[in-house]
Amino acid sequence: MDYVCACYRSCGGAAMVNRAINFRHSGLFDWIIQRFSAVVLAAYTIFILGNFLLHADMDFHAWKSIFDSIFTRVFSIITLIALCAHAWIGMWTVTTDYITSVQFGENATVLRFVFQFFVFLIVTGYLIWGVQIFWGS
């Protein structure tokens, strides 16, 4: 609340409304989430590629046992959440950089919003689908 009041004093009312429209509390929060999630994603990528190296001729049973283990399940779900956050922040950043009035004139805001809406739908879809795959069976 202190933070909000401080911002109100320093940025003024219009800036507050802008911040509300942007659905954002702070860019610093996104910055940290993007980096934490990146480390998780890197670790998982190495984990999966490492599994391919350990099982030179991967068959169904080896493959299934990897994804049946509780370790992989928990790691996969954590990574899935990290992926969704990472993808959302990344795509949000890209849309706000490239779908602007410089490139698209006065339609930019609507276009960006529609694009971000589809990104949101896909990210949500990945989350539900992923939980179904990693935890469902």
Binding site: W63, K64, F67, W129, Q132, I133
Partner: peptide, 8 residues
């Protein structure tokens, strides 16, 4: 995800 789901 699609290939993972089918393969499992």
């Amino acid at each position: 995800l699609y290939f993972l789901q089918i393969s499992l």
